[in-house]
C-alpha cells in the first residue's frame, strides 16, 4: 500500500511536467489548430538558455522570469517569421515546418552547448519536503508552479480584454476580425505564451532528467497524451490530463512487469489512440464539429 501511494505521489509530480507541456500544447492548438511537434525542442532550447545564464552566475529567480520573457519573444517571433507566410497552407506543410524547427533547435542546442548531459539545480532544493515525507521539495515545487501557471492563465483568459480577444479569435476568426481584433496578432501571442509555458516546463524538468538536446521528445509525447486526454480545447483539462498521465505511467511502470521502469512510451501511444477513439473531445474539451 505504501508503495502504491508513493507511486501515486511520484506520478503526480511527473504529471506536473506533463501538465505544463500539455498547457503549452493547448495554447498552440487554440491559436492555430495545430499540434506543435517542435514544442519540446523549443522548451529544451529555453532550458539551455536558463542553464547558460546560471553558468554566468545570475541568481535563479532572476533567470526564471528572464527566460520566460525571452521564450515568449522567441515564440512570438517564430510565428511572425516562419508561420505567418503559410497560415493557409495545408496540414502537411505545417507538419513539415514543425519538423524543420525540431531539427533546427535540436541541432543548434547540440552545436552551442554540445551533447554532454548537464545538471541543472533545483530552485526548491533537494531532499524530502519534510522529514520522512513521501514527496521531495522539487516535486512539490513542480506541482505548485504548474498550478500557479494554470491559475494565471485562467485569470488572463477570464478577466483581461486580450484574453477575451484571444478566445474569440480561436472560436471564430472571421467574426473576431469583424469586431476589430487583429487575429494574426492573437495567433502570435498564443505562440509566445505557449513558448513561455514550455520554458517553464523545461526548467522544472531539467533538474529531474538532466539537460541534453534530446530530453524533451518523450516528455512531449506524454504532454500530447495529457492534452488529448483532458481535451485540446481546455487548459484546465490539459492540466488534469497531464496529472492523470503521470500517475498512470508510474503505476503501469510499477505494476505491469512487461513494461518496467524504462519502457513506458507505448502507454502514451495507447492512451492517445484510446482517447481519440473513445472520447475525441477529451475529458473537458469541446467536440470540434468539422464542416464540409
Amino acid at each position: 500500500m505504501e508503495l502504491f501511494i508513493q507511486q501515486i505521489v511520484a506520478g503526480v509530480a511527473t504529471g506536473a511536467i506533463y501538465a505544463c507541456v500539455a498547457l503549452a500544447v493547448v495554447m498552440i492548438y487554440q491559436a492555430i489548430h495545430h499540434l506543435n511537434f517542435a514544442q519540446g525542442e523549443m522548451a529544451m532550447f529555453s532550458t539551455y538558455i536558463a542553464w547558460q545564464m546560471l553558468q554566468w552566475g545570475l541568481p535563479y529567480w532572476v533567470v526564471f522570469p528572464l527566460v520566460i520573457l525571452v521564450s515568449f519573444v522567441g515564440g512570438f517571433a517564430i510565428e511572425r517569421i516562419v508561420f505567418k507566410p503559410i497560415e493557409n497552407a495545408p496540414v502537411l506543410s505545417h507538419i513539415v515546418i514543425f519538423i524543420a524547427l525540431f531539427a533546427i533547435f535540436n541541432s543548434f542546442a547540440g552545436f552551442i552547448w554540445d551533447f554532454t548531459i548537464k545538471a541543472v539545480p533545483s530552485p526548491f532544493g533537494d531532499g524530502p519536503l519534510w522529514e520522512g515525507a513521501m514527496i521531495g521539495k522539487h516535486q512539490a515545487g513542480m506541482i505548485g508552479v504548474t498550478l500557479i501557471v494554470l491559475l494565471l492563465l485562467w485569470g488572463f483568459f477570464t478577466f483581461t480584454r486580450v484574453g477575451l480577444a484571444m478566445r474569440a479569435a480561436a472560436v471564430n476568426p472571421e467574426s473576431a476580425r469583424l469586431v476589430g481584433i487583429r487575429v494574426s496578432m492573437m495567433t502570435a501571442l498564443g505562440w509566445g505564451m505557449a513558448s513561455a509555458i514550455g520554458a517553464v516546463a523545461g526548467m522544472l524538468i531539467a533538474p529531474v532528467v538532466f539537460l541534453e538536446p534530446n530530453m524533451m521528445l518523450s516528455i512531449l509525447l506524454y504532454g500530447f497524451a495529457g492534452a488529448v486526454l483532458g481535451g485540446l480545447t481546455s487548459p484546465l483539462g490539459a492540466v488534469i490530463g497531464g496529472f492523470i498521465v503521470g500517475v498512470v505511467e508510474n503505476l503501469a511502470g510499477t505494476y505491469i512487469p512487461v513494461i518496467g521502469g524504462e519502457l513506458k512510451l507505448p502507454i502514451a501511444l495507447f492512451l492517445i489512440v484510446a482517447v481519440l477513439l473513445v472520447k475525441p473531445a477529451g475529458l473537458l474539451g469541446r467536440r470540434v464539429v468539422q464542416r464540409v
Binding site: 511537434f37 518523450s218 509525447l221 500530447f224 512510451l265 481519440l276
Partner: peptide, 11 residues
C-alpha cells in the same frame, strides 16, 4: 492522425 502516428513513431 498526425498525433497518433507521431506517438507510434516515438514509441
Amino acid at each position: 492522425l498526425a498525433l497518433a502516428t507521431f506517438a507510434l513513431a516515438v514509441a
